[in-house]
Design a protein around this nucleic acid. Structure first.
Length: 480
RNA sequence: GCCGAGGUGACAGAGUGGCUAAUGUGACCGCCUGCAGAGCGGUUUUCCGGGAGUUCGAAUCUCUCCCUCGGCACCA
């Protein structure tokens, strides 16, 4: 079984072979922290979180780097708008971002460098570019990358021609541009008095948007990455700019062997954007839906497919996920009810798990086809549900099932969530003993066919956040 | 203008040459149940945008037409 990855560079699904053995240097462009993150960010970071985890599962030694852009024009603008210190602002939104990611089950990167902590590295790289003739300084104190020097690389990722790019953007008006060539991009931007800036050989200024990723990925990863990822909107110009400057800096090609880009998240089939006002922050959505549902919604869609967000779609994802969770609940319940004797005939669960694992890997190996892989889990769940009622599996077998779910969860993180942190609080008045007492009272009423009383007890438990389910194996209860 | 994605059952969404085209949601029926929930089984008639072609065989390859959506230097 070989892992295949879609590479934006070649527009083909290729066999995944890292540059050096099992080591994978993976860099994913992080957010610019000038506001709370929106669902589109969640989509991107959850997708790459799964990709990273799957690579680890498949035995790769992954070094996952994802930056935080904490100084940039947008941060400065926002700070002016709010009359706040730009560094205070970016620090605040960095925390907001990290918190959102944590809630959504996204594992922290191995390295999460900030731009402001790497200014001297950035200056050194820009000097290298100036010295080797691929960058130039202007009178205003700006430094640009001289695209004419690596013109043959224009369009390698975006698959556009120079003419196409010039035409597309030709209608745009360029003000106060002191660059030599329209496609040149800025490496160092001089700062005004009231803007954040650092001293450099070219005067006080700040890094351009693209250079940071080149510098930090080379510092913490390698001059040649195995995977470079981000949203599709970063293909041009951001990622192409990175290719120009990184390869010019290191003299090595390719800067990254594989380029992976996740699809957009749309709302009513339009791309989310601030100007359209169809924009949801992660925090807003978390108020309406459990984190597990949001994560499942994203993981259940292939990472390159456009996802159309709507409340209806999220509700459906929630129901689908619940179906998977119900099987886990059923297994846990069966485990509690199954006596500890190993004198049971083999129900075939071990084989079923092996079969499902193989099918899951086969799907995931095809460019991380989570949709199909999760489809296999639904089939597995149905068969487990059936086995539990028909074959009475042994405790050891039930434990294997739970271990398998845990194994899958390490990759997808769609099961084990702190679903409702308040649940504990809400049913605080009811201890487990009290709950059992009430269940026993209800069972007594049921035996006496006092349905009114039985239902009243059930309602009372419901109000306290406890769900009661009768089954052949006894009464099941859970907190919601 | 240039580049790209896509049109599959009621809906969502896999599948890229060959068994009765995954899976989930919804609806309906049956089993189970005092009821409910969960679960199991079944049904949802010819579900692959139209046309032509290649092939023993096409959702899958080629051509063509129609339609939808996205990107093009703020962007995950």
């Amino acid at each position: 079984m070989t892992l295949k990855v879609y590479n934006t560079l070649t527009r083909e699904t290729e066999e995944f072979i890292p540059l050096q053995g099992k080591t994978v240097n993976m860099y994913v462009c992080g957010p610019t922290v000038y506001d709370h993150c929106h669902l589109g960010h969640a989509r991107s970071y959850i997708s790459f979180d799964v990709i990273r985890s799957y690579l680890v599962y498949r035995g790769y030694d992954v070094n996952y780097i994802s930056n935080i852009t904490d100084v940039d024009d947008k941060v400065i603008e926002r700070a002016k708008e709010l009359e706040e210190d730009p560094f205070v602002l970016s620090a605040k939104f960095t925390e907001s971002f990290k918190n959102d990611m944590k809630l959504l089950g996204v594992k922290a990167p191995d390295v999460q460098p900030k731009v402001t902590e790497h200014i001297s590295d950035i200056i050194r790289s820009i000097e290298t570019l100036i010295n080797n003739g691929t960058a130039y300084v202007t009178e205003k104190g700006n430094v640009y990358y001289d695209l004419k020097r690596s013109e043959e690389k224009i369009g390698v990722l975006s698959h556009q021609t120079v003419e196409g790019l010039l035409e597309g953007s030709g209608s745009r008006v360029y003000v106060e541009d002191d660059k030599k060539y329209q496609l040149d991009f800025v490496l160092w931007k001089s700062s005004a008095e009231n803007e954040p800036g650092w001293n450099s050989p070219w005067g006080r200024g700040r890094p351009g948007w693209h250079i940071e990723c080149s510098v930090m990925s080379m510092k913490y990863g390698s001059e040649q990455l195995d995977i470079h990822g981000g949203g599709m909107d970063l293909i041009f110009p951001h990622h192409e700019a990175e290719i120009h400057q990184s390869e010019s800096c290191s003299g090595k090609h390719p800067f990254s062997k594989y380029w992976m880009h996740n699809g957009f998240l749309t709302i009513e089939r339009e791309k989310m954007s601030k100007s359209l006002g169809n924009f949801f922050t992660i925090k807003e959505v978390l108020e309406k839906f459990p984190a597990g549902t949001i994560r499942f919604f994203i993981v259940y869609t292939h990472y390159r497919t456009t996802i159309d967000f709507s409340e209806k779609a999220l509700e459906e994802a929630g129901r689908a996920r619940q179906r998977l969770l119900n099987t886990i609940t059923n297994v846990e319940h069966a485990l509690r009810e199954t006596p500890d004797n190993e004198n049971v005939t083999d129900s075939g669960i071990k084989e079923l798990i092996d079969e499902t694992r193989d099918a899951f890997i086969l799907s995931m190996d095809e460019d991380f086809n989570t949709r199909e892989a999760i489809g296999k889990l639904f089939v597995f769940g149905r068969r487990i549900n059936s086995l539990i009622t028909n074959k009475k599996p042994a405790r050891s077998e039930l434990k294997y099932v739970l271990d398998f779910y845990s194994e899958i969860n390490d990759i997808l993180r769609i099961f084990d969530f702190d679903e409702n942190p308040d649940a504990e609080k809400e049913s605080k008045g009811l201890s487990e003993e009290r709950i059992m007492e009430m269940i026993n009272l209800r069972e007594k009423a049921r035996r006496e066919k006092d349905w009114a009383k039985a239902d009243a007890i059930r309602d009372e438990l419901n109000e306290n956040g406890i769900i009661i389910e009768d089954s052949k194996e006894g009464v099941r209860w859970k907190r919601i």
